[in-house]
Nucleic acid binder design. Structure first.
Lengths: 358, 358
DNA sequence: CTGAAAGCGCTTACAG
DNA sequence: CTGAAAGCGCTTACAG
């Protein structure tokens, strides 16, 4: 004997009205094979009884769960709120739910996370891969959100172009000596951002790139960056690959007595929650996550309802065909947000840290 | 004709081995009614075929989906990553999945969000309510994560006690004139934090509370706070209810030429991602989200598998019994994290904004 | 220890 | 336009 449900089901509505459950199903799904009259009566009865369809029954029958899995490299990532919010919105607008899984920054955990979602019967997967990771065939459509430079089909913001915008902005302000600050040289996203910056800086602009993470890993500290020294030797702008890095630089400079943007301009990336709130507010690049999410979700749904017409409720393991979904790499444009952390380049002047000017 | 699955199912394993699917089911679920020999053979065959159980089939049969819903007031909340990560971890450790829904800060959307999750057949709900919201009976167990002062059963960090810790820390450092800075006076959490601070400050300590959000709503700006004026009139510490607010205050003070903690100490709350990264790093209160998540998930699972032995696959609407879950309000302790944004109180000295000392 | 059977709620191809 | 029937994959009470 299986577990009965206490709520009303199709059969109960059918019984209450003296019709067949097939008719109730057809009426409620609006497939149009039922007379307007009956549809009306059935709808009313369903409302009256507080009918809510059973996902399990439907999923078992149709082979589709109506749920998408979202795999995140590390939920602690400050960009995650934007991502999750956009994905949830895009999915729920299309009648899908979103199941989350966190891979805590590790590749094996990423595989586990994907496995857990597959076991839960997701119809498709949105994966924000750990840097450099490739996803094998998993038995359901996969949309990757990464950089355009990642091999394979992905949706993503055009990080390179964002880097170009930042660089042009600084260049327009007259900066001639710029520090480009990255964190992790193994990150595709960060490389694209820095690459775009470099590409957009003219020959007349002197720039230097520093990656922070390797310095920290070798036991260095942020102090090893010698920001005050760099500024005194003529750097008038510091372009970073992330608002978090920009915040670090900004507050460090302020503590050392430099003014931003008076002495140095600072830029970030991602328009994180705190960026408009700090003083000076951060000039940054905002990505249209909503659009990225819509593209990813639409691609997934097209694949789910199209090509894979006959799809199992449960995953087919050991599939050989790759099933990543996007027809092509989609690039979503970036928007430059100019706030007060950037300003005209000011010629170098001798300056003693700690706030006192000579 | 229903949609066939391409992957192996119980029946295929059974057929391959010449046993019944009931036996396969019993063997794989380890209920112990099958001989060790057979269990061994069945397990092996299942692995060989790459068997993954169908959630839909199981859910339909057992009336349980194995999924918990997480309703967030606003995914953009900077604390959300910590919450989602902890919940996902606690749930998946217990064999449950987590479906997310964002209520975008609005009450009606919160109701919609809950509705969507219920329709997806979640077995239980974790709700981080929009401030002041009560959740009606929804037909499945609900765990609320809020302040202990919220009426109803909740798990939460002990925000009051966190406020006390901060206040004691500042008091121990010798601060005698403290500004308590809140954002939204309608927030239970923020009121608890401020309440705790006040309670722990001795009679000899002068304090004033300012709520920022009403000022901003009336068209004021952060500048209306007149932080420089307050500091010059003797405030040596500013205790805020959030790291975001602390960051705002910190950078504004720095821009105005004050040193933190030299001239003023600043504290936050929540230990957000940027807090250890800014200079000076923020002294704050860290909440043990993992523990909160474990309590909430455990309570939910107890309710799901216990009391409600016979539970429908789909929600029963219009239930009359309240089904909030926690036996009692659980309070999780807070941890004070002392970083460099706080230091000994320094006596007031005349100081001209903009970095020049007389 | 093992199996036959029922049934969870739904949808769809088919017959009328 | 409407209904009877089958079946998606699973688990469990029951019989042997």
């Amino acid at each position: 004997m299986a577990v009965p449900r206490t709520g009303p089901n199709l059969t109960k509505i059918a019984a209450a009205l003296g019709v067949s459950s097939a008719t109730v199903s057809n009426a409620l799904s609006g497939k149009g094979r039922v007379s307007a009259d009956l549809v009306q009566k059935i709808r009313q009865k369903a409302d009256e009884l507080g009918y809510v369809p059973s996902n399990a029954g439907r999923a078992l029958r149709t082979g589709r769960s109506g749920v998408l899995g979202l795999v995140l490299p590390d939920i602690a990532n400050p960009l995650f709120p934007q991502i999750a919010q956009a994905m949830e919105m895009a999915a729920s607008n299309n009648g899908y739910g979103v199941l989350i899984a966190d891979s805590r920054g590790e590749v094996t955990t990423q595989t586990d996370a994907i496995g857990r979602l597959i076991e839960r019967g997701v119809d498709g997967l949105i994966v924000i891969p750990r840097r450099g990771t490739r996803i094998g065939a998993v038995g359901c459509p996969v949309a990757m959100v990464d950089t355009p430079s990642t091999p394979g089909n992905t949706v993503s913001a055009d990080h390179w172009e964002g880097g170009e915008q930042i660089a042009r902005h600084l260049s327009d302000l007259g900066h001639k000596k710029i520090l480009l600050l990255g964190n992790d040289p193994a990150s595709n996203v960060q490389n694209d951002r820095i690459g775009g910056m470099k590409a957009a800086l003219g020959r007349d602009i002197c720039h230097q790139t520093i990656w922070l993470e390797p310095i920290l890993r070798d036991g260095g500290t942020t102090a090893s960056l010698k920001l005050p020294y760099l500024v005194e030797s003529g750097v008038t702008a510091i372009a970073t690959v992330s608002d978090l890095l920009a915040l670090r630089v900004l507050t460090e400079l302020q503590t050392a007595g430099f003014r931003v943007p008076g002495h140095v301009s600072v830029t970030g990336f991602d328009d994180l929650i705190f960026s408009p709130v700090v003083t000076p507010a951060l000039t940054t690049i905002h990505m249209d996550m909503a659009q990225i999410a819509e593209i990813a979700v639409a691609a997934l749904i097209a694949e789910i309802t199209g090509t894979q017409k006959i799809k199992s409720t449960t995953p087919q393991q050991k599939r050989t065909v790759p099933d990543t979904v996007m027809a092509d790499t989609s690039r979503v444009p970036m928007e430059l947000i100019i706030r007060s952390s950037t300003g005209p380049a000011t010629p170098y002047q001798t300056h003693i840290p700690n706030g006192e000017t000579l």
